[in-house]
Design a protein around this nucleic acid. Sequence first.
DNA 1: TTGCTTATTGGTCGCACACTCAATAACGTT
DNA 2: AACGTTATTGAGTGTGCGACCAATAAGCAA
Lengths: 211, 211
Amino acid sequence: MSSSVQRPRVRKSPAARRAEIVDTAAAVALAEGLECVTLRRIGDDLGVRPGLISHYFPSAEELVAEAFGTAASGELDALLPEGPPGISPVRRLAGFLGRTTGEEYDAISRLWINARHLSRYRPALRDRVAEQEAAWRGRLESLIREGVERGEFRTPDPSVTTVQILVVLDGLGAHANTDTSGRPAAVARMAHITAERELGLAEGALSGPSA
Amino acid sequence: MSSSVQRPRVRKSPAARRAEIVDTAAAVALAEGLECVTLRRIGDDLGVRPGLISHYFPSAEELVAEAFGTAASGELDALLPEGPPGISPVRRLAGFLGRTTGEEYDAISRLWINARHLSRYRPALRDRVAEQEAAWRGRLESLIREGVERGEFRTPDPSVTTVQILVVLDGLGAHANTDTSGRPAAVARMAHITAERELGLAEGALSGPSA
DNA sequence: TTGCTTATTGGTCGCACACTCAATAACGTT
DNA sequence: AACGTTATTGAGTGTGCGACCAATAAGCAA
């Protein structure tokens, strides 16, 4: 017990320490919210003094922005990996939509709501939000374009269709802090239905056996 | 200048004072955000000591919840007044959707994002959010039901259609703190298009001459 | 081994917040 | 005109935050 009170001073390379800080900040952001990303909190989690965090992030706002960026881009990779283009676009899209439901996705929705709200007051975060929105949109759009090229999807404007799907997902995610359950299927599956309609797919084509 | 330093003590009836407090709190919430609803800030706006606000709201969280409730219900009345059922449902719905665009509606979207996020940490606010969501849903649903009865709308499930429209509106409003402009028409009009499709209306039927 | 760079500490400062409570004065009642 | 109720003040407490900085020690280089 007394050993934890007096901790030995461990000295790491700036790159390693910085990465460590950003990673735990991202984890805190995802699990508890961006306002919990404080110098003290991250320092505690790392067994380090708050001043050290300040040393790497002279402005705390910068750390918050970085935490969001890291968390959001990590979740995008989990939700819709760039992956090898071997898998069919229909399956990839079905997989993505399938992952936009459940407790784990609720955490992501919460993070987005959190970031979109906080970006009202924090310019650095606002930039990161715009950046991540572009990244998410880009990832989905290139999937859709690939599907169009392969003849699996049919849409006059892949860019518009992409945003339409994302708008529905944002709308569904808006309630991640309240109800989330007990939605009729016609609502819970709105993203699927929208994608199928806008991409010229048969009804249910995106609810298939893909995870 | 010295007159403002030493202010005369004005004594109001509890009901009047409380209403005054809630009104300014709601205004602050709408214009600057729920985290700006603090004892000090509301006290300053009213030319009164913070302790007085505490006297009426022993818990500050209660005031924040009340501020949101008042602001949200006021905006609902402005957006979709219960009004006399003389006006046709098509016109009322068109009016409502027409008001969901522009800088003024952005402020409302910001408030919703704010409240949905903050309700993650504040139970009292969470209850108010649920209450207001029910109020908004109820108002729109009864409009739709009336339209169905009058034969203007056609939908198998007014309740589901209501939520579908609201989901799209939430999705569009999610970006109120960032881009909002420069959206292609097919996106900006998503709520209109969704409503027209789900209610069996002709394309453009909700974009008419109604304000 | 000696020395230098700098990662890391420990402590401090100022600010904003909610909350508490005894003292005070405005106002209706008598 | 005196009284009593209570709305309102003033002052103080404790907490958590970011920012700042001199002192310290870890580890690399000479």
